[in-house]
Amino acid sequence: MLTFRKSLFAAILLITFIVYLRSSHSASSLPSPDSVSAGHTYDDDPAKGDQNGGNKDTVQQVPLIPPPTAPLRDRLRYHFPYDLEAKFPAYIWQTWKYAPSSMFFSESLRDPESSWSELHPGFVHEVIPDDTQRHLIKYLFGAVPDVYEAYDSMPLPVLKADFFRYLILLARGGIYSDIDTTALKPASDWLPSELDLATVGAVVGIEADPDRPDWHDWYARRIQFCQWTLQSKPGHPIMRDIVAYITEETLRMKKAGILKVGKMDKTVMEYTGPGAWTDAVFRYFNNPDYFNIEPGSTLNVTYEDFTNQQGYKKVGDVVVLPITSFSPGVHQMGAGDIDDPMAFVKHHFGGTWKDDPSL
């Protein structure tokens, strides 16, 4: 006779068997870890398209998080992906010792700082004070701890200020501009209206074009791109490269025991400043992963492509602005005045970092 206990036992066996069949089927339908890893190349260049001629509707495998031992650039590419067709984020980033709400915020900086908000009413405008920067970097780069270690190990405020601009644009995008700059025109006027912004990922300006034999006594590069005002979409390859370069150089000097004032083997200009920034831009322009370079050629783009530039120049997904755009009124190297149609940002050249007695 079928008792209640026997019936209950049979029901439990049946349910267990059904659950086992379903779990076996689900496990067999999932891709193996090896197949997922093999199918992902960390290639984020949207300009390359479907190189293999395959069906674009094919379901893409979910990429694995790169391990901590993966190359730094691969980890940065994963955590801060680049979408060329996305809009430029409506952020304006600036840094200073104190926030504008502080009584210690210099009165001479209030008009320049407010000019950015006045000309960009729909933007989020943040002035990040020194005591907040490290917390923000730790939050944004928590998944890439060597970047935060590099930032936190830097022995000079100017190095951290330089590094911060690249870090914030890599992670969040938008506009970075030094606190001693005045916005002359809104960012919507920086590029011609006929230019498709879905093909632009970064905007840089020429800082110096010194056509004189002793140019190296005054500037780091023959054509020097300014880094007091920058605009980019998050994850741009140039930002990824400069962040990786500075991180690697910082940790190298730290390991060698020379990451100290007066002992570093790089100047500010070559370490985090316009020399390093200019090199990163040219590395991008000459990177065969992004540009078609003629066989046998060692360089795709050189300073000669930008000297005496008067208007816009688009190189791949980067728009290079003439010296007038971010350096109007310097009265040299062909720069126009602040009323020039191409004048967008006025730099007041406060140069407060040069007053640091440790330099």
Rank of each mutant, 00 (worst) to 15 (best):
H331F: 10
L13K: 13
G350H: 04
E194H: 14
A280K: 05
F141Y: 15
D130K: 13
L191Q: 03
H125R: 11
Q94M: 09
L299H: 11
L230N: 08
V203C: 09
M333S: 02
G273W: 04
Y303H: 13
F104P: 00
D241G: 09
T272N: 08
R172P: 05
T352D: 12
K56P: 10
A99R: 01
F105W: 05
D45C: 09
D196Y: 09
L119E: 04
H331K: 13
K263L: 13
G273Q: 03
A10D: 04
A208F: 12
K254S: 06
P46L: 00
L2P: 06
P129E: 03
T3Y: 04
N52Y: 13
K354E: 13
D241V: 06
P129V: 03
H348I: 06
T132L: 14
P322I: 08
K233D: 08
S177N: 07
G329E: 00
D209W: 14
A11D: 00
V330Y: 06
K313A: 10
Y219F: 15
F104E: 15
K87H: 14
A10V: 10
A27F: 11
D339Y: 13
D196N: 14
R77S: 14
S32C: 10
L159E: 14
K138L: 08
F285I: 05
S153N: 02
A335I: 07
V62N: 12
G329T: 01
Q60A: 14
